[in-house]
Design a protein around this nucleic acid. Sequence first.
DNA 1: TATTGTTATACTCTATAACTATA
DNA 2: TATAGTTATAGAGTATAACAATA
Lengths: 174, 174
Amino acid sequence: MAGGPAKRRKPKGSQRDISDATLRRFSGYNMKRAFNTVQTDVNRVLAPFGLRMVTFSALVIIVDNPGLRQSQLADALSVERPNLVLIVDDLERRGLISRNPSPKDRRAYALNPTDDGAKLYRAAVAAVGDHDAWITRHLSHAERAALIPVLQRIEAADRAEVPEEKASGRPQTS
Amino acid sequence: MAGGPAKRRKPKGSQRDISDATLRRFSGYNMKRAFNTVQTDVNRVLAPFGLRMVTFSALVIIVDNPGLRQSQLADALSVERPNLVLIVDDLERRGLISRNPSPKDRRAYALNPTDDGAKLYRAAVAAVGDHDAWITRHLSHAERAALIPVLQRIEAADRAEVPEEKASGRPQTS
DNA sequence: TATTGTTATACTCTATAACTATA
DNA sequence: TATAGTTATAGAGTATAACAATA
C-alpha cells in the first residue's frame, strides 16, 4: 500500500556526449526542466488523494479563503475562468467543496470546503510539504531560504510592464 | 517592426484579499507560476524568429552538436521520441536544419544545421540571453549566480531514485 | 454596459502503444 | 530481439469567443 511504481527510465547510454551547455545558461530552460520533473513527482504524491497539482491548489485556496467566488479563485490561481469550471466541478463531485448561492450576488457562487475537504487538505498539504523538503534536501539553508523569494521576484519582474524596446529589440547585454 | 502588443490584463480589483500563503510556501507552486510567466514571455521573444521555446531548444542542441541523431536530441531535451518528430519537421520545413542519412546506421538520421539555421541560432540566442538578463534584473549578483545551479540540483534530486517510503508515506518534517 | 459562471472550441504539450525498417 | 524514426491517439494545460442570468 506504499504507492505505485516510481521507477524512471534512464539507462540510455548515448554513444556520444550531447552538450546542452548553451541552453543551460538560460534560467528559463533550467526552470522548465526542474519544474517538469517536480510537477510529475508532485502529481504522483497527490494521486493517492485523488488530486492533481491544479485541483490541490484550488482546494488549498478554498480552505484558506472560505466563501470566495470562482472568479476570485481563478484570479488567485492565474487560471482562466472557463478552465476553472472543470476544476471546481471535479472538487465538488468528490464532495470536497460545495457551491453555495451567494447572498449578495445571485450570479455568483460562494465556494466552501466540506469537512472531507478540510480533512484531505491537511493530509495533502503535509504530503506536499514533505515532498518539497525532499526535493530541496541537497540545498544549503541559505539556498533554501532564497529559492522562493527569488522565484517570486522573477515572476513579478516578468509580469511587470515590458517596454516595447525590451520586448523585441534588445539592449546590449555582453 | 518592434513586435506586437505586449499588454497584460491585470486591473482585476478583487473585493476581498485572497490569501495563497499556504501555496506560496511550496517551491513547486512558485516554480510553476514563475515558469509559466517566463515561458509566455520567451515565446513572445522568439515569435519574431518563427520559433517557440521547444523548437529554439532543439535548434540550439543541433547547432552545438551537429550530426547527432534524433533519439539523442530527444534524450537531451527530455522529450519523448514521438513528440520530437513534429519539432524536427518544423525546423526542417523552415530550412533551418537538414535530416541526412546516417552513414553508420541506415535507420537513423544525422541532424545538421543549415547556414540559415546557424544564423538564426545566433540571433535567437542573443535575444533569449537579453530576456534572461531582463527577468533577473532585480536579483543580486549572488542570487543570479545561485539560481541555475539550485534549479539543476532540484532537478537532479527529484530525478534520483525515490524510495517508496518517501514517495507515499512521509518522514517527519516539522 | 459590465460581470459571473458556463459552453464550446482550439492549440500546445506530454505520454503511450504500435508499426516499419533496419540492426 | 532490440533500436530509430514514425504514426496515431489520448490526456492534460492553456487560451479566446460567446451565451444566459444578473448587476
